[in-house]
């Protein structure tokens, strides 16, 4: 039985600009299940990133509610949301957003120490994770501008998972990467998912979306379709791709 970790109730998000209101999310009801790799897809301007940030407590909804478990986080103050994020969420961004004034190791430790006290275990864990994503010891003291895009994103992933978040949010994690780097990054996501990590990812790339097991398609601020896939397996990739493509075609992709 699927266990809901996050759900929304008539979620609305409206932006105002010069008196003109733009309703980006409209009365959206959605459930995110524990252990799922949920992929949110949609055309440009459909509101998928806005939905991700509303779900993750990066932004507050205009109306409606977001529940984390039984807890309504939509009325949290900004500081409460920050505490919520560090306790429960991890983030991977398209622009990566590493701290330019810190080296690789400190970038990860900054996130880790926001929640945990320093310990030899934490340092060891950071080292292991970095090694695992292919960031070698020589690169630990490098600064973000001395890394390639792929390396930076891998550091970003380590930073996102160092606190073992209940949900990992990813906004176009491969958007700024080349094909090889994208593949590496998505392999890491797949591995994390296989170990039970709940992931919510926004993407417009089918190849990336194939790594998920549940695809939600939104259009004009509402969910118009949902597609479920078995766990990612490279053996049935062709069939998996066809299935997703058909779904997307039906959604008007």
């Amino acid at each position: 039985m699927n266990f809901s970790i996050l759900h929304t109730d008539k979620l609305c998000k409206t932006f105002s600009n010069g008196g003109v209101q733009q309703h980006v999310i409209k009365n959206l009801d959605l459930e995110i299940y524990k252990g799922d790799f949920t992929v949110i897809m949609g055309s440009s301007g459909s509101g998928k990133s806005t939905l991700l940030y509303a779900l993750s407590g990066m932004d507050k909804p205009t109306l409606g509610n977001v529940y984390f478990g039984e807890e309504d986080i939509s009325n949290y103050s900004n500081d409460d949301l920050a505490v919520f994020r560090r306790n429960h969420c991890g983030f991977v961004f398209q622009s990566i957003y590493l701290l330019d004034n810190m080296n690789v190791f400190d970038n990860v430790m900054t996130a880790a120490l926001a929640l945990q006290k320093n310990s030899p275990q934490l340092v060891k864990k950071t080292e292991e994770l970095l090694k695992k994503v292919g960031i070698t010891e020589e690169a630990w003291k490098k600064y973000p501008n001395q890394l390639s895009g792929g390396e930076r994103q891998r550091v970003g992933i380590v930073r996102a998972v160092i606190n073992e978040p209940q949900i990992l949010f990813a906004d176009e994690p491969t958007g700024s990467l080349n094909s090889a780097s994208s593949s590496d990054v998505m392999d890491i996501f797949t591995e994390l998912h296989s170990k039970g990590q709940s992931i919510v990812m926004v993407t417009h790339d089918i190849k990336t979306a194939l790594h998920g097991n549940r695809v939600i398609f939104i259009s004009d601020g509402t969910v118009i379709g949902e597609y479920e896939m078995p766990l990612y397996n490279t053996d049935d990739l062709k069939k998996r791709r066809e299935g997703l493509q058909n779904f997307l075609d039906r959604m008007g992709w």
């Binding site: 900004n78 920050a82 560090r86 701290l99 004034n101 996130a111």
Partner: peptide
């Protein structure tokens, strides 16, 4: 000057007060 860095740290869960 450090607006971006502070924004990232807020994203990581650091509160404004911290």
């Amino acid at each position: 000057r450090d607006r971006r860095e502070f924004g990232i740290m807020k994203g990581l869960g650091y509160t404004s007060r911290e």
